[in-house]
Nucleic acid binder design. Structure first.
Length: 879
DNA sequence: CGATCCCGCCACATT
DNA sequence: AATGTGGCGGGATCG
């Protein structure tokens, strides 16, 4: 509908403003956006511009009926149209169909045409979903409002929600910085973690019990908790800088509400949340009392938020049948589960940047940062962070604190929510593939990659967090980083930094093997998802994919139909978007993606590709990224010095096999190989094994020192839950050796040993990357904290993991935890930081030596290092 | 008639 | 005080 509407809308809406715009545009010519940095998307207002639109325009022009204003616009448009002809397909259809009837509508813009959702789509169309690193796009509220032809107030509605997801951040008065979706997965992860903390316990609890309980709870709810939720869940806001003063009203509402709303989805089993339940949960006070009016008001706001989220392709409207009848509800169709429940907490540390506006007003700094980070691809981002660390400004973002105690109440609600039955809006919606599969993907990588801009800096941390459960986190993080480091080298960034950090640096080309923690099963599931994504990407790039992904096909169709999708991601379609979303998810999985992304704009696709690796089909199709392929193969011959294994790799699929071979026993393991194309960076190749081994990873990771890759192998069991890790552990580059030591764990795929010699590798913990960046630090602290706070579950898990690990790193992990905990306890970011520092320093030695890394024995060292790093980072930043 | 949600008043925040 | 933000809810539309 929206689409159609849009087309229609275009004509009308703008009326007032448009003239202005037009004038501007004219000057510039179609692309005009000159003014706006954004430029990216011309299509922004595609609606009008579609070819069909043009026709309409012409027609209308011909007819006297047309309005004056319209005329103006139209006149201009035609010109523009020519340029933009490419505009979105959807529009076109509409246009065609409508063309005749439109006129009427034009005249009178229906409410729909003015809807916030549509407006949001237009808004999003203006900016690239995955902006290039270099670009930092600045958004001027006034300008956008004028261009879109709406009052500024409406723009606030959109921006506030986007900000809650960190798609944008406020830079200054009237100015926002567009970050795109690079960090989206990270943000979601954080929200999920936080949500779990707050609601999760109950949720899970409830879930088990099930609906019955739910209902009960609902009733109970009233009684139970007063929730103090008031305080922003995630406060992105920076506690520190800005005076607390700001808190007052701003923190609340839309931004926070949006985050909470998203959390409900992420925590909900069904991924479906009804408006009323959400409203009740979100109402600060006790639910019962809630006046009807208050409730109504809340619902209204939720509609506003839902419209934006829908435009983002994160949710869609559905109906749930409950006891009584059907109720409006929304279903989450965005990426789902990242790291997953297993190790959630970490995120909290970094919470989302979003809110923090006020904080220090460092607009400048932020700005710069953003610039640097944002766009760079994830990988770079991480790197930069490192570099940037010194800069420190980031601190602003200090971690967010999450307070989530009120869980109880919420939980109840959640439970209710969860329990809800969904009618399922439609068969299609359900595709498990989308939501669930994705979930599997761990995002660890993403976070790293994504790391985005400062504000987001947090994320990186988050990543770590995930793993936080046990060391694994760090590991995972590290894994990701490798690429970054490499980049750094190339770039010249400071090697020094790198060393400190947890990553591995490989000389330009190197091959990495990853072990996926995911279980086969999971993998499979994930794969599909990935596949989807991949497909999309592939399709976009090449037509190939389709076959492979049946699943998506339905969804894809749209995409397929419009080859251009890639280009237009944001522009319109949810469909596309949806796919996009998943993609993003995917990306996360593969830590490396980011690098690629850098190289290729279509980073998203790339990520998918990686995933695809698993599937032969996908992989090949993906090809589009010739680079990848090239990389892979070349790797064989070339790069992978170490990778004896890799040889086989030539192809990704093969790579898997190899891995498996090595692993031998492990059936699941070999998931895939990821080769990183050199594209942007130095050439890195990655091989992933999908196996679960995650557990191993975690530990292994910690041990950084010994780059020896071997580490990885943690018993999966523990980690299993976290897919992420794998990677970290992974990293071990080539693993020629296997395992010896660790592998014992079973999964061990790699033997890093080989690597060490071959190339200098730096292994960092995940944290590493971020280290310097202030934001991250904060995050780290949090992570630890969370666990502590929270809970047990995680904690326990972590412990378990640790136990498993013992052989390898055992102790270390634990240690880390402890350290973290302290920090966590305080909760407050600040407090945490200090702690971190201390901790950080303790271990430093290990970190510092590059050499150590390579060889290091020590898991311990590694772990410590990672931890330290984190700490450092925080500290540095703080400093 | 209930579900949506546009519109813009106006309070609070920031400059 | 002016201007930026954005809470909030009346009431118009939609279905």
């Amino acid at each position: 509908e929206n689409i159609l509407d849009r087309s229609r809308m275009a004509p009308k809406t703008p009326i007032k403003n448009e003239p202005v715009d037009l004038s501007k545009q004219k000057g510039c010519t179609p692309e005009r956006n000159p003014m706006t940095p954004v430029k990216l998307i011309d299509r922004p207002q595609p609606d009008p511009w579609t070819p069909t639109a043009n026709l309409k325009m012409l027609v209308s022009a011909a007819s006297p009926d047309m309005r004056d204003r319209e005329k103006k616009k139209e006149l201009f448009r035609p010109i523009e149209n020519s340029d933009q002809s490419d505009t979105p397909d959807s529009l076109q259809y509409d246009m065609i169909e409508d063309s005749m009837g439109d006129e009427f509508e034009k005249q009178r813009p229906s409410r729909k045409q003015k809807s916030l959702g549509l407006l949001c789509q237009k808004f999003l169309a203006r900016y690239p979903s995955y902006p290039l690193s270099t670009e930092k796009t600045t958004i001027s509220l006034d300008e956008v409002a004028a261009v879109l032809g709406v009052e500024r107030r409406r723009i606030y509605d959109i921006v506030n929600v986007l900000e809650s997801l960190q798609l944008v951040s406020r830079v200054a008065k009237n100015q926002y910085c567009w970050h795109g979706r690079h960090n989206l997965s990270q943000t979601l992860k954080v929200l999920q973690d936080v949500g779990e903390l707050q609601y999760g316990e109950l949720m899970t609890f409830l879930q088990h019990k099930e609906q019955d309980l739910e209902y009960r709870f609902r009733d109970q709810k009233k009684e139970t908790l007063p929730d103090s939720q008031d305080s922003p869940l995630l406060d992105f806001s920076e506690p520190d800088c800005t005076s607390a003063s700001a808190n007052s009203r701003k923190d609340k509402s839309l931004r926070i509400m949006s985050q909470k709303f998203v959390m409900l989805f992420l925590v909900s089993k069904t991924k479906i949340v009804t408006l009323d339940i959400a409203a009740k949960i979100l109402i600060e006070e006790t639910q019962d009392t809630v006046d009807h009016s208050k409730f109504k008001s809340k619902v209204r706001r939720l509609y506003d938020i839902a419209n934006v989220l829908t435009s983002l392709g994160l949710i869609k409207k559905v109906h749930v049948t409950e006891e009584r009848g059907r109720k409006p509800a929304f279903k989450w169709i965005g990426p789902a589960e990242f790291p997953a429940r297993t190790g959630n907490f970490s995120p909290s540390s970094n919470p989302l940047p979003g809110t923090q506006r006020g904080a220090c007003a460092n607009g400048k700094q932020k700005f710069s940062r953003h610039a640097s980070f944002n766009f760079t691809q994830p990988c770079e981002g991480t790197r930069r962070k490192v570099n940037s660390e010194p800069s420190s400004p980031d601190l602003e973002r200090p971690a967010c604190v999450v307070n989530s105690d009120e869980h109880g109440c919420k939980m109840i609600n959640l439970a209710a929510v969860c329990s809800q039955k969904v009618e399922e809006d439609n068969s299609s919606a359900r595709n498990p593939s989308i939501s669930s599969p994705l979930s599997h993907l761990p995002v660890p990588g993403d976070s790293d990659f994504c790391v985005t801009p400062l504000p987001q800096a947090v994320f990186p941390v988050v990543q770590t967090d995930v793993p936080s459960l046990s060391l694994p986190n760090s590991i995972s993080g590290q894994a990701l980083h490798p690429s970054t480091p490499a980049l750094n080298k190339t770039e010249n960034e400071k090697p020094a930094l790198l060393p400190s950090q947890p990553f591995l640096c490989f000389p330009s080309s190197s091959v990495f093997m990853w072990c996926g923690s995911l279980q086969e099963n999971n993998l499979k599931e994930t794969l599909p998802t990935a596949g989807d994504v991949g497909n999309r990407s592939a399709e976009a790039q090449t037509a190939v994919p389709a076959a492979a992904c049946q699943k998506r096909s339905s969804h894809q169709l749209t995409a397929a139909s419009a080859p251009a999708d890639e280009e237009e991601p944001a522009s319109k379609k949810q469909n596309v978007e949806e796919s996009d979303v998943p993609l993003s998810l995917v990306v996360p999985k593969k830590p490396f993606e980011s690098p690629k992304a850098e190289a290729t704009p279509g980073s998203v696709g790339t990520s998918a590709e990686h995933l695809e690796d698993f599937h032969p089909d996908l992989a090949s199709p993906v090809a589009p990224e010739a680079t990848d392929k090239e990389c892979t193969k070349p790797l064989d011959s070339q790069k992978q010095e170490e990778c004896s294994q890799n040889k086989g790799l030539g192809e990704p699929s093969q790579g898997e096999e190899h891995i498996s071979k090595e692993n031998g026993s492990q059936p699941f393991l070999p998931q895939y190989l990821y080769v990183q194309p050199t594209a942007g960076l130095s050439n890195f190749n990655f091989l992933f094994s999908a196996n679960q081994a995650p557990g191993g990873i975690s530990l292994a990771a910690s041990p950084l020192p010994s780059v020896s890759v071997p580490c990885v192998m943690v018993p999966a069991a523990a980690l299993a839950s976290f897919p992420l890790f794998c990677s970290p552990a992974v990293i071990s580059p080539l693993s020629s050796v296997p395992d010896g030591s660790f592998s014992a764990a079973s999964s061990t795929n790699f033997s890093v040993s080989g690597l060490a010699p071959a190339t200098p590798v730096l292994i960092g913990t995940t944290a590493v990357v971020t280290p310097k960046v202030s934001p991250t630090p904060s995050v780290d602290p949090q992570q630890p904290a969370q666990p502590a706070l929270h809970l047990s579950p995680v904690f326990a898990r972590s412990c378990a993991a640790v136990k498993l690990e013992p052989p390898v790193c055992g102790g270390h992990p634990v240690t880390l935890l402890k350290l973290q905990q302290p920090s966590s306890a305080p909760l407050t970011p600040k407090s945490i930081r200090p702690a971190c520092h201390e901790a950080f320093f303790k271990t430093p030695g290990s970190l510092g030596d590059p050499v150590c890394w390579k060889k290091n024995e020590g898991n311990q060292t590694r772990s410590a290092s990672s931890v330290q790093r984190r700490l450092e980072i925080s500290s540095t930043s703080a400093d």
